Amino acid sequence: MGSGLCRDRVVIVTGAGRGIGRAHALAFADEGALVVVNDVGVALDGSRTGEGPAADVVAEIEERGGKAVANTDDVADFEGARRLVGTALENFGRLDVLVNNAGFVRDRMLVNLGEDEWDAVIRVHLKGHFAPLRHAAAHWRAESKAGRTPEARVINTSSGAGLLGSVGQANYSAAKAGIAALTVVAAAELARYGVTVNAIAPSARTRMTEEVFADTMARPDAGFDAMAPENVSPLVVWLGSTESADVTGRVFEVEGGKVALAQAWRHGPEADKGARWHPAELGPVVADLLAKAPAPEPVYGAN
């Protein structure tokens, strides 16, 4: 067991049946949290499998001396997300932390990407973040207005693909970029209710990334598997603790033993004529702006 950093804090982790989500659930439980393990049980492409991974993770937590309950609601279903928040309240009497992690991929080059593949990925990632956040936020606002201001935390899951783009993942990249934007807006709106909202952009070996990281080996000098999903969870647990009260609206990149703060879009060089530009004038103006600005980070997979 851990240090008790999150002792008796009630935590929801979505997509917690496998991979990074499972690692989060176990790590929170090891630090004394009471965990709602959410997983609808789907294959990598989002199709139903009939498996019950959420119950398996609950069993793991209980075997380690922790407390957890399973929830199999679809987080991208608005009423399902409401029931998910209700599961925490009904079983543990409160909610302190929401970790939005659920997702899947349907990768395709843009010219071959189907409408259903676009809709499915946007739904599970972006709406699947919004819906639980919406219901959790409503609960925390009510608590705050009743004079019980919470020390609540939301940790969303973006991606390097959302921050920089990724060839062959237009749908996934767009959804993850949306999650980063949702994070900063929610942080600004919910601060008054005692809620912080941050996001991570993790790199780890999961069902979604196992082909990408198939050749990645543990460090021979220390036996450290840099791509193990368990490497991502310590930061998430810390962000879910009361110690992180001063950190909100941030996106962190996490890989192996590395934690980095991602820099958001920022205002850059500008030119102000004080009047409307004529199209023919703008060629040298744009060239000058580009010359003054740093080159953009390359898109993942771009030549």
Rank of each mutant, 00 (worst) to 15 (best):
R153F: 10
R153H: 11
R153G: 09
V154Y: 07
I155Q: 10
I155N: 07
I155Y: 07
S158G: 13
S159W: 09
A161R: 05
A161P: 04
A161M: 10
A161Y: 09
A161D: 03
G162M: 12
G162S: 02
L163G: 01
L164R: 14
G165R: 12
V167M: 11
Q169M: 13
A174R: 08
K176C: 03
I179C: 00
A181V: 03
L182R: 00
T183D: 00
V184Y: 00
V184Q: 00
V184S: 00
V185L: 08
A186R: 01
A186S: 11
A186H: 08
A187N: 02
A187V: 10
E189H: 07
A191E: 11
G194F: 08
V195A: 09
T196Y: 07
V197N: 01
N198T: 02
N198D: 01
N198M: 02
I200A: 06
A201H: 02
A201D: 02
S203H: 11
A204H: 02
R205T: 01
M208I: 11
T209I: 11
E210M: 13
E210C: 11
E210N: 10
E211V: 15
V212C: 10
F213K: 09
F213S: 08
A214R: 15
D215Y: 13
D215E: 15
D215I: 08
T216V: 15
T216E: 15
R219E: 14
P220D: 07
